[in-house]
Write a protein that binds this DNA or RNA. Structure first.
Lengths: 138, 138
DNA sequence: ACTTGACTTAGACAAAGTCCATTGTAGGAT
DNA sequence: ATCCTACAATGGACTTTGTCTAAGTCAAGT
């Protein structure tokens, strides 16, 4: 499981009540919260926490590589704590539900040199779109 | 080439000076402008055009399937007139430059049933990330 | 040329996120 | 245990991106 808090403490991350709460909110699989959702849940545990702090903390967690930013729709960025295992996303086009998925194959190998335009390609992000079981009945 | 304007006229789209200008701005390959960029270029040709009209027109072009919305970064949506040929995107992580690419293989086939969570998967979007030749020298 | 419904406009509004000066505090030093 | 100080948190103003609306304008058919 390797708790997020454990890892952060181990990295000498200065611990405060606010940071602990944010780290607690971001735990588990298939977790993809917006900054505002993180803030809402953090407020439930620590009413004085401010929006700016949540943004700052999320930004730091991303810099540390402990959390990933996901932009599946045009709305708000989402934060995905499942950073230790590479994965892609499956998104419901209707309700926005997100699942982590692990496709076979390596898309990086599927991009011929002639299609790289001199870029140094280092990463691929794959987003599958469709309808979730709930939204398919309509 | 199949000009965008031609196609729109052929579809009985009501033509106005504003719509013509927007359609003219969106022409060519590897074009991925934000709404504001489209507006800026449109204003150069037709100073009275308003932001709302640009947004409306872009929205309609997307509905008509003549232009694609692309959200490569967390910032603004981008508009891609290259809708008649399916493609994916290669994005510079530093400067944001975007190229259209055509990888081999079919990522849809790479998602096992066990990884679909009951979704009806209909589409895949692949975004390659790296550094463009200009940004690689730094 | 007239009419009409669709198109355009300006500006108010909203959502997501950033910035900054001030205040507070974690954790090492004493 | 207490003190210091650099780092963190706060809240409010500000920015960016996008939506909405009421009123004015215009393309296209008759």
């Amino acid at each position: 499981m390797s708790d997020l808090l454990e890892r952060l403490r181990g990295r000498g991350w200065r611990m405060t009540a606010q940071r602990r709460v944010v780290a607690e909110v971001l735990n588990g699989e298939h977790v993809h919260l917006t900054a505002d959702e993180v803030h809402a849940r953090a407020v439930a545990k620590l009413p004085e926490i401010s929006r700016a702090t949540v943004y700052n903390t999320l930004g730091e967690l991303v810099s540390l590589g402990e959390v990933l930013e996901v932009t599946t729709d045009k709305r708000a960025k989402r934060y995905d704590p499942n950073a230790h295992r590479p994965h892609h996303h499956l998104v419901c086009a209707r309700c926005g539900a997100i699942r982590d998925v692990h496709p076979t194959g390596n898309p990086l190998a599927d991009l011929p040199d002639a299609e790289r335009f001199g870029f140094t390609v280092s990463d691929v992000e794959v987003t599958y779109r469709g309808l979730c079981p709930d939204c398919a009945d309509a």
